[in-house]
Amino acid sequence: MKIRQFIGGAWGQRVAILVIICAVMAVFERQFFTAANAASVLFTISVYGTMACGMLFVVLLGGLDLSVGSMAGVAACIVARLVQDSGYTAEGVIGGMLVAFAVCVAVGVVQGMCVTYLKMPSFVVTLSFKYILYGAAPLITGGSFIYYQGNAVAENPVQRFVYSIGSARPFGVPLPIIIFVFFVVAALVVVTKTTYGRRLYAIGGNDTASALVGIRVRRDTIVAYIASSFCAAVAGVVLSSINMQAGQTTGNNYEGSVLMAMIVGGINLAGGEGDVAGAVFGALFVGLITNMMTLLSISPDFQKFAQGAIILAAVCINAYSGRRAGRVKLATAPAGK
């Protein structure tokens, strides 16, 4: 009984999907189960997952953040630029990160204010900022890519620090994974244990009623955009450190994958429904699918097609199951007047 429930339930399906993907990979591609590939998959997952943890806040409110990809790019560029300009000093590294996070938080505030005070649709605001940030990245780097000088790594400890975000393995676990897990735990705590998490769900479920029980809807909304921007910034720094470079296209179009993770994770884009576990599952799914297509040497451009198809299919499934749930609800709800 328990097992049947598990398989029939959302979690059973989720695990089943992941297992099936892995099984298919095991059969078709020997490379999949190599250590190098595992690391690559985990890196991808941790970058997407970190972004997803932040975007979850905005999506729970009923919004959408399409600027996370460009946000990551800008953060990466700021860090790279300041680190390079400072000549790879510790101040440069720490200052770069502080500046990057501050800028992204500020942009998050502006986005949140556009949504709350100007009442603009969330996706329009964040889409606009996607392009604004995408355009701003070359302003920071001076138009070209900045490469971390990997060959001097061993000599300069600070330089190693930048490099090490992507490659350090405290306790044998790559640092990006640790960062990812940290954000998952943080998001989990915020969403399930704090009053802010409760308020997020309440606002996403019914903002009018939320305002009438004293929730400061605007403030909480702005905070959600800050959280999303901050996570995107962290993901951007991690990404640039993994790739040892930063530039305009760093993180470009990642929002599509993160959105896919959201939708696949069963998070209701209308707001008020979804959880961290869904976002994590979504990130795992996206990471595995991306890796699978890369290993099967499907052109990265063609992967777009799959991405679009998966998002569309997941949206259809969510809408269908939502409607079925709605029908059940109607049937059981006592008929009013």
Partner: peptide, 23 residues
């Protein structure tokens, strides 16, 4: 007909069509 949200749907089909073009 399927009653899906417009911007998510067209965002997805936009990516899909671009992929189709590649195909």
């Amino acid at each position: 007909r399927a009653g899906l949200t417009e911007f998510v749907t067209t965002l997805a089909t936009g990516i899909l069509y671009q992929g189709l073009g590649l195909l």
